[in-house]
Amino acid sequence: MFGSDPTSAGTLLAAGVTSAAVSLWLLLPRGTQSPASMRLGTVLGLLALAAFVATGQRLGSIGEEAVFLIVSLVAVVAGAATIVTRSPVYSAIWFALALAGVAGVLLVLGAQFLGVATIVVYAGAILVMFLFVLMLAQPSGMAPYDRVSSEPLLSAVAGAVLLGLLTLSIGRLTAEPAACCNTPSRAAAMADAAPVAPAAADVAKADRMESDQVARLGAELFGRHLLAVEVAGVLLLASLVGAIAVVSRGEAAAASEGRFSR
């Protein structure tokens, strides 16, 4: 919104980064915290979110803009709640909500397969595995190391500075120059390979609305990247065997040495 005025954009970015750092520092577990400081941290976090929303650029249509804003806010707010929640189980649940937001962002971006795969693989498999391990390994009640964190101020400042630098470099993005290099871009090659060659706007619209996107992604995955798929399969098998081996040998060793056991 404020991209035309560099001074205003810089002030907005500085305010957003500062309030994000202070908010994270107030919200991260630091032992004893008063509810007032938590409320202040929440308010500052909302201010930082508003600043970053204002940093974003306007999209073409109101509907697309609203949907993208909602799903990205869900993702970011749930991600922040993941790292500031005391209870690890609540952290995992908030992370599931963040995954839902990320899947929404991917769907808005037009990656249908990845949006669904994020829900199925991450929220359905990986997160359930995290919850199982939490149930196996969680001591009763909230552990003291969940109520303190190491160097919250330095970490919050480091994260906010990284976010500010990334936002600054993202804000300098400009459209790709038409003739940057001699080799034709893959987008142009794909557009040429299309059976009909309509105008650029029609190409963009048809590409967004295309129905066989998953099929084309699968053809790309099992065509050009077939060897990588095989290697990934070997990696999955190796991690499966390795996990079982570590569990069985570790339990045998713990039983023989009489260590702390579940």
Partner: peptide, 19 residues
Amino acid sequence: AMLFSLGLVGILTRRNLIV
């Protein structure tokens, strides 16, 4: 970038291995 920065802050501060 926001998700990456949040994850970075979390992995630097939190002490629970699963978190």
